[in-house]
């Protein structure tokens, strides 16, 4: 590039706003609601039920395992392959349970979404605009 040095320009409004350096008050934009409120409410209720169930299960696993270890000191003395049972429960057994609960929740939530999808809405994740995959 051989020309002169570039100069930065903007609209007068932008120039003044930038010089002030503080965000001004913005006009509120309308917040779009769901296309079908009645259907959206049904989805909401179903998802809330699933969420409550999952949180209850999570509490059961966390407080249940720790409560069990607290209530049954005998678990410390039982060993499996030389490792105290209570240690095994704590260090390894909880993670698969947590994964299972989460996976189960996601499946339930996605099924609800598929079941209660507005008929006009596109299926799958993508937005409704054209995808270019596999056109050539």
């Amino acid at each position: 590039m051989t020309g002169t040095r570039r100069v930065r320009v903007s609209s007068p409004q932008t120039r003044i706003a930038l010089a002030r350096g503080v965000r001004g008050v913005r006009r509120p934009l309308p917040l779009p609601g769901p296309a079908d409120p009645a259907l959206a409410r049904r989805v909401f209720v179903a998802q809330r039920r699933a969420a409550v169930r999952t949180v209850a299960l999570l509490a059961l696993v966390l407080f249940g395992t720790s409560g069990l270890i607290a209530a049954l000191p005998v678990l410390d003395r039982l060993t499996v392959g030389g490792v105290p049972l209570s240690w095994l429960v704590l260090a390894t057994a909880t993670y698969p349970l947590l994964l299972l609960i989460a996976a189960w929740h996601v499946r339930a939530a996605e099924r609800t979404e598929d079941r209660l999808r507005p008929p006009s809405a596109p299926t799958g994740d993508g937005p409704g605009r054209p995808a270019r995959d596999g056109r050539r």
Binding site: M1, G3, T4, R6, R8, V9, Q13, T14, A17, G24
Partner: peptide, 16 residues
């Protein structure tokens, strides 16, 4: 977005 988010243009003749 409000006035501070307008376009900024950096230019000069023959400089892109």
């Amino acid at each position: 977005y409000g006035p501070e988010h307008g376009l900024l243009i950096e230019t000069a003749p023959d400089s892109g």
